[in-house]
Nucleic acid binder design. Structure first.
Lengths: 205, 205, 205, 205
DNA sequence: GATGAATGAGTCTTCATTCAT
DNA sequence: AATGAATGAAGACTCATTCAT
């Protein structure tokens, strides 16, 4: 009975949803979650005020979806860049480079997420932590742990070190000017981290 | 006599202003600037809704004052703890300790400031950067520069390094649970930074 | 062949219309006319959101149709049960029994109608009164008037008495719990009405 | 510190609250709860849109307050008129007269309440039943029970009879035209009820 | 006939701010 | 100085209705 095929309709819905999420990222990055205007989000995605409510039950759900999508993108982005690197040092550098690139490429999403990370909404923070869990785990298991085991890193506490690294990562990645240009260089940050962790006299590998 | 009354009045004004700022810090820490309710701030300071407008022209000015007061407190707090330390390593440790202690002691203010730092309000961020300028300068001039000059630190870029250190500082200090307990230890963070910066084989001094 | 298809189509249309009215009754009974959601009605009838507009020009028309259909059902229901009774007392009892049974059997429709009857929509009330006119008339002509003429009832005003009886009828029928169980017994109500109207010493007939 | 005395302020609040409730009664009577516009209520009471929210936390609370106030008014109204009557018959008549007079005098409130009574909002119905409990109890204890005990009434079930009487009462009181003129006469209704309940050959007392 | 994506008018609610006292 | 009643702009959300397919 439907004139559109099922798949066509799904395609339209997917695209609209994407457009709304993109729009939400921009609006939230610019004004913060609390000041983001749902009507504006829908309209600057090219739709009427109410359309967003055909796709998300409310403002909260919109942000939750944005967080999850961003984390997923971010994860993919990092994994792709790191898994090909074999040495610990290379991985560390690739990790920071990936972060900086991600922010540059997905600036609004990244800003929105940073906003939440240091913002007052406990509920969203938890969503964020959960969504980023895989990245945390990856850093611990694929960079820190091998580094320590191979003797490249000092015998640091893996837990604390992961936290420190992520803190450095998020803190430095998030420092960009309005155009998205980072204030620091991924190499500089990676170098800082490398020196902080490496065994003296260690050979890079 | 009139003079006396005058100074009494001033004293009362100062105290009321303080109470309002305290209240603002708590409210903003809990709900974020955008969701902070000015009426609530005034009332939980023990005054009527309108009273805050006898002290600050509006919500913005209230936050600006809070930022400036917090920066000033923070500066004093750090300087007191560091100036007595002579060695670079001691100063580094004292710096992080002071930060963690400040957050613990002035939790609402610290949370409010972190909120702004990573939040979407460019205008407030600028105020914040300006207000924290002296601390940036102090770290650069009293920790990094002497460290490099004395050969205790590697010959790093002073500008980048200050930024990195402040990033690490703010990022780690701001990670506290709801009760204000930090997730990391200042010693651990200081150690991380120390290793990142020190000349290999350097003697701590 | 074409004729056959024609009637088949009509049959389908009739069934769809019925399904939509059933669905409307349930939704309106639950949420009231104002809060009834047209899209929900269409969907819980098993169709898409827009389908209802292929059968009714709008929300109002949907309710109007529901009122008329309900009145018609109600009328048939009552007439069937009463016309077979000959005595005035029997008719009175049958009348209340029929009402209670109707409510039990067509709960959502009955609730929707009661809703309108005591609700604020003058326009619908008028539709309702018109649609129920035959029942009013029937009660007046087939119960009250014969009762008075035969001396079984006191010489009451036929107009007022019909109104009183209908009021009692609607008021008691509409008092059901959420499952549709009436709070009163038709016999009790009929007995009350009988005593109110009967000539003292009258013989039931 | 306050320029108004406490009592003056309280007086103003009381009056404003009253005005808002009056306005709410009119608006709800006219359009029903669901279609009543809170902004309109506030504005036709002579205030700005938001003022109502300084007095009631929301639309629901506004209606709850209206129900309770109406029940209280109604109770007072009835008790005053009935307690002075000693005989059962007189009380029955006074009861219906009071009801009709109440509706005439407080038409919007009465219509609003009737609306709720037969409307779809279970929550409000419960509030309404609770608020009207004292009137139910009064009818049972001060009219029905004495009537039965003195032999003036037939030995009916007190519970059912109270319900029947209240049903008749609410049903007949609520039938008014748009101007508030009742369709029935309290004496006619009282007479109907009296005949329904009285012992044959009973002497009125 | 049926579909469901899209629309946008309408409503409840919040709260920064004003100001008469 | 302080008060708190009042304001009204702004924004989240609902849903009856339209219409291209």
């Amino acid at each position: 009975m439907a004139r559109h095929k099922q798949s066509e309709r799904e395609e339209i819905r997917r695209e609209t949803r994407q457009a709304l999420l993109d729009s939400a990222a921009v609006e939230i990055a610019r004004h913060g979650y609390d000041n983001a205007n749902v009507n504006t989000i829908s309209q600057s995605a090219g739709f009427a005020k109410g359309t967003v409510y055909n796709y998300f039950p409310g403002k909260e759900a919109l942000l939750t979806a944005l967080i999850e999508e961003t984390a997923s993108l971010h994860r993919t982005f990092i994994l792709e860049r790191i898994q090909t690197e074999k040495g610990v040092h290379e991985r560390l550098v690739a990790f920071f480079r990936a972060g900086f690139d991600f922010v540059t490429q997905y600036l609004p999403r990244a800003q929105a997420v940073i906003n939440i990370l240091y913002g007052p909404h406990q509920h969203f923070k938890e969503t964020l932590y959960e969504a980023y869990q895989p990245i945390f785990a990856f850093v611990g298991q694929e960079i820190i742990a091998p580094g320590i085991q191979s003797g490249v890193f000092r015998p640091v506490s893996p837990g604390y070190t992961t936290t420190l690294l992520m803190t450095l990562y998020l803190g430095t990645c998030s420092q960009v000017d309005e155009r998205g240009k980072p204030m620091l260089d991924p190499e500089v940050v990676a170098d800082f981290a490398w020196n902080a962790l490496k065994q003296e006299y260690a050979v890079r590998r």
